[in-house]
């Protein structure tokens, strides 16, 4: 199942609908990294609310997405990690270090808006 990428102002939003296969994740990574420059976006939000399992591949891919997008000149926020998923990830050592996270889409947008204002 492919992940749709929506454009909202200067921000791209990718919302995971259900558990994704590894191929879907690769596809999403390619899509986001291309689109972010093509659409001149300054921020990307990846919404994982629907994911109730996060394996190491998904977690690594999210981290790669965030780092690649930074290299392409934009900010990434991962939003909507479920409490159980968060704790399971931490126990597996998948802490998404250096990646911004927020509670939900609204918080993510607020974070990016803040970041656009003072980009320190």
């Amino acid at each position: 199942m492919e992940v749709p990428i929506l454009k909202q102002g200067e921000v791209l939003i990718a919302t995971f609908q259900a558990a994704l296969s590894d191929a879907d994740l690769e596809h999403l990574r390619r899509g986001l990294v291309q689109q972010v420059v093509k659409l001149r976006s300054r921020g990307v939000i990846v919404d994982v609310t629907a994911m109730d399992v996060m394996d190491s591949f998904a977690s690594r891919t999210l981290r790669e997405i965030a780092h690649m997008i930074r290299l392409r000149g934009a900010e990434t926020v991962i939003v909507g990690i479920q409490p159980e998923v968060a704790f399971a990830m931490v126990q597996l050592g998948l802490t998404l270090e250096d990646v911004a996270t927020a509670l939900d889409l609204e918080e993510g947008l607020a974070y990016l808006t803040q970041k656009f204002k003072n980009p320190d």
């Binding site: 991962i78 968060a86 704790f87 931490v90």
Partner: peptide, 12 residues
């Protein structure tokens, strides 16, 4: 420490 990390993943 894990709790602190997990909270960060929730954006707190």
């Amino acid at each position: 420490v894990q709790t602190v990390e997990a909270s960060r993943l929730l954006g707190a």
